[in-house]
Nucleic acid binder design. Sequence first.
DNA 1: TCGCGCGCTTGATCTGGGTCAAAGTTAACC
DNA 2: GGTTAACTTTGACCCAGATCAAGCGCGCGA
Lengths: 248, 248
Amino acid sequence: MLQDEKVKSPHECEECPIRHRAVCARCETDELERLEEIKYYRNFEAGQTVIWSGDKMDFVGSVVSGIATLTQTMEDGRTQMVGLLLPSDFVGRPGREGSAYDVVATTDVVMCCFRKKPFEQLMERTPHIAQRLLEMTLDELDAAREWMLVLGRKNAREKIASLLSIIARRDATLNLRPTEGALVFDLPLTREAMADYLGLTLETVSRQISALKRDGVIHLEGKRHVTVPDFSRLMEEAGDDSDGGMFA
Amino acid sequence: MLQDEKVKSPHECEECPIRHRAVCARCETDELERLEEIKYYRNFEAGQTVIWSGDKMDFVGSVVSGIATLTQTMEDGRTQMVGLLLPSDFVGRPGREGSAYDVVATTDVVMCCFRKKPFEQLMERTPHIAQRLLEMTLDELDAAREWMLVLGRKNAREKIASLLSIIARRDATLNLRPTEGALVFDLPLTREAMADYLGLTLETVSRQISALKRDGVIHLEGKRHVTVPDFSRLMEEAGDDSDGGMFA
DNA sequence: TCGCGCGCTTGATCTGGGTCAAAGTTAACC
DNA sequence: GGTTAACTTTGACCCAGATCAAGCGCGCGA
């Protein structure tokens, strides 16, 4: 299962791209050294499963680069994505043996891993880590609740618009692109993955994207490259007016 | 807005019904004394709004008794419940000014409150509180993700069965009822509140409850009193087979 | 005791999105 | 450079659940 996995030469925490957003964000230099002792890197290829639901997890860690998804599957095969893991997001749960979800890399992914036991011990002695993890978990909970509204009460068009606006927004903040006028980004998900995220079928996703294109809300180049000429228009289509603190 | 609110005479933490499940669960006696200094009780009547979405929160706290809900509302009035707060559940978010959701008491509720600032300060000096809060938040996140599957992929009948089995399960653990054979409990929610939880209309909720009754999955006395003759049958109807660790 | 209202049930009809089917696109791989 | 397979689009049709509309029944206040 892991034969195609390569181990990259480790790099220094101080120059890590997610140094100031991951679990380690609040750590002082000495705390970082302690973390550095127990960390290692793992690479996953696009499509590869990082962790299977039910498996016991012997590590926790952060996504350094790439995108992974958290999904739940019913016996009959219906699946629902329950989390989208971007760089700096944390994987695994301290104090729990197994994973409740499948974690799958949707692009090539580099993860910064810590063996679970040592990490848990370190966490007890290092409040900065627990504090940051609490903060991140609360943010994830807010995001999950936002998605409950999307899943429970929005129609297909609003769902697509919601997903696009979220991807656009995080892309703008991650890449710090100027955002003068039009937003431009690449969809990191297939139509099927979008459907799994939104509780739709891939056909409906395709139709609604076509409709948004036809109505001029978005512009498409190829299947994945999206231009949003007017972000507030997209927000309107998503059903949440207030322009989301995008330009705060 | 708060004129009908009464302040109950405070009682001792040591004999508090949620002593061992709330944020304070891990606190030692001395830590509890520190908490006791900044705590106060508030009572809310059924139907009363505890916190309005967007309001700045000057306190955080635990539900001591009764049931409250967390809901999100869109401009056009569509609402989605995003959390169900039972005794011992925590309300409010340290490190954030305003509430993102409406918090509404669905039954009479007693809350154990802490002024936000002092609580945050105390939390910094008391890892036991932060640890417990992290644990509770991770559990809430798991519950939220479970609901995302329900909202995104289950049909109306499965949704109702899922809700019933969750209520049945927590009722069994809270009240420590023997659970020999049939489960019996009262629905703490109106049909409309169930609909808001499940992303359905109240008519569909009503129809599906009638259908489950007709099919012998549940038995109803009045509108609220439910008997589940065969719990595993209910689980099957909910779409998740594995009998949920109910008898662990 | 009556009547009013709220919460609930049930029926009739409509429709958004699912399902099934087929064909178009793109990119990877001989 | 052509074949293939994965991904996507589009069309036709159908059904689960929404919507609209009546009525029921219990509890509360006068």
